[in-house]
Design a protein around this nucleic acid. Structure first.
Lengths: 209, 209, 209, 209
DNA sequence: TATGAATGAGGGTTCATTCAT
DNA sequence: CATGAATGAACCCTCATTCAT
């Protein structure tokens, strides 16, 4: 075992990882400015100078957490692009699947999620990137005939991110709903809308996006 | 003009209002902690003690801004409940109208918006209230036969707030789109979804929310 | 009447007197540093600049109160010197009388008393003066044969002041005892001591001051 | 010496003790409000933040000094209760002894004394406690037959504290008299009073406390 | 790898006092 | 006689960061 006979934290990697974990929690709970280096090290049972052994400064540890989340999010988004020749039934399934995967990651990493989506100053930048990625996916998918050609894919992408963000905090992180449920709800809403079908059928020709 | 030749603070109300305005801008730009009382008063051409003539402390001025936004948002939400006996055409128009009004307020008050939606620690609380209000509206509107009975109104309300929030920052405040456009887009997405109609018609019976 | 039809405080003397009264109370209650000019004027229903119409600054109003007390104390002390050819019975009565007068003044002016005895930085100086005055009285009175020649009049004077000061706060201002009672007690103690007479009689020759 | 060549604060306990010492001096000299944390740390050759390493705030260091004095005073008072079966000669000796001990402590700790007796807002409270303690002692001692049964022990206790307080400042701390002298004087005054014996003998039956 | 001790820099707040009317 | 509005000057305190060991 790593800690056999060693003074506490004698393994640098462990101390570093611990600091990251504690920091993530503190940042997520209290925000950047209300998280003090002193409280991070206290949570990790280390002294303040030890902190600077592993991180250049407070900003650096925060950025490391930001980046971690950032990269994962981009990955998930890239993997969500739909393949050609899907049936409608599998289509929806496929979309839900990608979204559910993402939400499961978020649910498993609530601190990172809060940091990356809410607290980071670069949250806006991240969301913009995700939106771009999704928009490109959508454009491609529209060209595959999955979605209407008259939708503004940019707007849809933004909307999707907005929904994910909101539902993540209100339903997912608060454990009110499961990833699967949320994914399903989002997809249904996005695909079909909420209009009463009767009305819809009578009106369908009039809409212009 | 009233203040021509007047010593800079001869009218207390003006000084107060100016401080509020400058503070809103600073908070919106730099967040709560990076906004210093010293920079607020500098922006208002006043000395630091003058600040404390009008506000108990830094927190108080921030809360005043929060509350301002808070109240307006609740108002807008309450006014958006749909009346009975609307035609489909007017129905959509009516929804867009309410949303557009809201977005126009946000566009005219970008600082307040950024504070109330992003920066305030109470942003989460506000959004929760808005969601509740909207959910109740939706429940009522579903009972009027406007929307499908099988939608989870809570989720729709959350989604709507998420979309508004996101589009406000990425499209509205950055002046990439007009309130009217954004309102239209949101409503279309929400009412009809994005699914290619062909597919939809063939599939409509299978969906389960 | 002074205030008939006049705007509040239109009479400068009244405003001044009111400020003094309020200030005395605040200083007595809270000390010098915890008494703010702002709270004095608030108590007198005046504005801050008005304060400076009547007093050079915060120190000045405090000194005025100090001086008032100072002068009265000196007066009382001077008047307490005993006349020659008193009988023992009248002697004690006479001493009690002077002391009681003083205590009655203190009881009637609790704020001033607290300020002059406790709060004033010049309290030490005042007490020293009182002690000197009393010591001279005692020297004279010893020469009249009223008191033992072997007493250290300086020490007795100091002791007397200490007793007065202490009993004033603990018994007089807290209204636990009347001036007359306190005066009597002090005088008895000072004149006769507390030793059990039996012991005293057997021992009287041994004492050396 | 332990600190030769050592960086100035290598030993935290030393820094803390130094701060306490300097603070005691400053508080005693200038009072609470006129003592700035900045001047305390300057006197200890430390930076301001170092102060907060050892004390929660300015109030805390002051309270620590208050408490120190408080406890010692209570101790001395408790130890001064007279044992049964003392001869008159030893009785007086014994009283003087207790008092002298106390005064010697005060003389050796002039700063603490000034703080605890004069400057502390809790000085009144402390004196009240001391008085109570002494009164109980006196009641007991009266029951042992040492003192007259007709004395008001409360008043005597108050008087004793007043005398001690006064003589401490005017004679002891200013080094005009030694603890022994002062103790003797107080005890003589308290036991025998100052009345000329001739008069006293002729009058003794008339007095009523 | 680790820390006890210390600090530079800066921020929020208060208060006595004054200006202009 | 009176004040609404404003400020200079300080002071307490916090925090990220570093030195010396």
């Amino acid at each position: 075992m790593a800690e056999r006979g060693r003074p506490k934290g004698a393994n640098g990697e462990e101390s570093r990882a611990l600091l990251l974990k504690v920091a993530a929690n503190e940042f997520a709970q209290n925000g950047y400015h209300n998280t003090k280096v002193s409280s991070i090290v206290k949570g990790a049972n280390l002294s303040q100078p030890a902190f600077y052994l592993y991180f250049k400064n407070k900003e650096a540890i925060f950025e490391e957490l930001e980046d971690l989340f950032h990269l994962r999010m981009i990955e998930f988004t890239k993997k969500s692009r739909l393949e050609p020749n899907l049936q409608l039934s599998t289509l929806k399934e496929r979309i839900v699947y990608g979204l559910q995967n993402l939400l499961e990651y978020l649910a498993k990493n609530p601190d990172l999620t809060r940091i990356g989506f809410y607290i980071s100053t670069r949250a806006g930048e991240l969301k913009k990137q995700l939106v771009n990625e999704i928009k490109e996916n959508l454009d491609f998918e529209v060209s595959l005939g999955y979605f209407r050609k008259d939708v503004d894919t940019q707007m849809v992408a933004e909307s999707l991110i907005g929904m994910i963000e909101r539902l993540t905090f209100s339903q997912l992180l608060s454990k009110q709903k499961e990833p699967a449920q949320i994914a399903n709800n989002i997809v249904n809403l996005l695909l079909y809308g909420i209009l009463e079908t009767q009305l819809f059928l009578g009106d369908k020709n009039e809409q212009t996006w």
